[in-house]
Simulated scan of single mutants.
Amino acid sequence: MDEVFGRRDMISPARLKVLSVKSDARGFMQVGGHLGALMVTGVALALTWGTWWAVPAFVAHGILINFLYAGQHELSHWTVFRTKKINEVFGRLFGFVLIYPRDFDQIQHFAHHRFTQDWDNDGELGRPRYTLSSYLLWVFGPTYWYTRVRRIIRFSLGIVSEHYIPDDRKPQVIREARWHLAGYVAIAAISLATGSWLAVQLWLLPMLALKPVHQLQNTIEHLGLPHVDAITQNTRSTRTNAVMRWLCWNMQYHTAHHAFPGVPCYTLPTLHQEIFVEKDRKPPSMTYLGFQWAVVKAFWNGRTEADYPDDRIWISDDTDLEPVAPRPAAAA
């Protein structure tokens, strides 16, 4: 996606063109680093299974698997590699591992970029407004995995109800889901035939158990921000450390990414520096744990997402962006 959603005065076209250059070499470094780390944790987990040493290996392995979505996200944008086909190959591989087919994810995510925070058209806002319980179920994974598995089965049956999927793309996502389902059935059949638990030990179990860590990134990017057509207001960046930025392929610079999604992940720090820091601008930003605590407080005592206005910020730790109070309770 090479569309521009940020204001034209944020960066010059010439400079944006430089920062948007893709590189196969840098792409292989990015992908290779993540897959290499996964190989290390996978071997460590296999060798230590059944001992206490398996616990840290299990945690690290599960986190690395889940954050493959950071890679899938970038690969869907065609920005990791200069060679377009390589983006597709790795994107499909990551999507299979994550039970999140690439073509569907790409269609949904592009609708999210084009209509960010638009309740009717944002591909990632097709959900009821959060309550505390529904939010926690999403963060810890039960409803997340339910929707992923159910969608693949539904698509495999030829049922595509998402309004943001064009009619001419529906056969594509149906075919993709059927290939995924066939692959998962084949893995299950081979595992049963051989009596092997490797797929569970090294893939499914750590991926499902460590999903909450990845949800820290998934939930912080837009929740509690105005549903308005302004990237610098409706998208949140994350204040964190270098390890997390590596793990998440620099998606913590999320406001910069939404403004100029054609910029590769490996030049996002530079883009953020030039459009925000050097110009003394500040996008909405929070820490992971600070955000989660603020969400829990916002939904405490029976309050829901519907209790807050759509056009104003209501989750923030920035005194310059003071969150609004919930709407008064309706009179009995």
Rank of each mutant, 00 (worst) to 15 (best):
V213D: 05
Y144Q: 12
R312E: 14
I153A: 09
F155G: 01
S76W: 03
R150M: 06
W145F: 15
I65G: 07
I63V: 15
M29R: 13
T79S: 15
W78M: 14
Q217R: 04
R8P: 02
V40S: 06
F140E: 02
S191N: 05
G36H: 05
G27I: 06
A199Q: 05
G126D: 08
L125P: 02
S161G: 03
W52V: 15
E74T: 09
L181R: 03
R148I: 12
V31Q: 11
S156Q: 00
T267D: 03
G27P: 05
R127C: 00
Q30W: 04
P323V: 09
S133L: 13
W78D: 15
W246L: 10
V149E: 07
W197T: 13
P261D: 07
L98P: 09
L137I: 06
R15S: 03
W249D: 09
Y100G: 05
A256H: 01
T304G: 01
F104R: 08
S12C: 02
F90K: 04
R303T: 00
I65L: 15
V277T: 15
A209H: 02
V18W: 01
H257T: 01
T143L: 08
I174T: 08
F260V: 04
P328S: 02
M286H: 10
V263E: 07
D280K: 13
V55L: 15
Y146V: 07
R102W: 11
T41A: 13
P284L: 08
R236N: 12
Q108P: 00
I107E: 09
A70P: 02
P212R: 06
K170P: 04
I275V: 13
R150Q: 11
S134A: 04
F299E: 03
L321M: 15
Q233A: 13
R281I: 02
R151A: 11
L19C: 05
I152G: 08
G27H: 06
R154V: 01
T143Q: 10
R312D: 09
S76Y: 04
W300H: 10
F90M: 04
W203D: 05
F110A: 10
H113D: 03
S133D: 04
A111M: 00
M286V: 07
M251I: 11
D24L: 07
E124Q: 07
R312I: 00
A186L: 12
S191P: 05
A199S: 14
M1A: 14
H272L: 01
D122E: 01
P326R: 02
V173T: 08
W249L: 06
P284I: 10
D2G: 15
N241I: 09
R151P: 02
L45G: 08
W145A: 06
G33C: 08
K211V: 12
A14L: 05
P212I: 06
D105T: 14
M286K: 02
A329H: 01
F276L: 04
D168C: 01
Q252A: 13
E221S: 12
A57N: 12
R129Y: 07
N121V: 00
P212K: 05
A25I: 12
I275D: 03
F260N: 03
D280H: 14
R327N: 11
R114Q: 10
G33P: 02
A330R: 09
S23L: 08
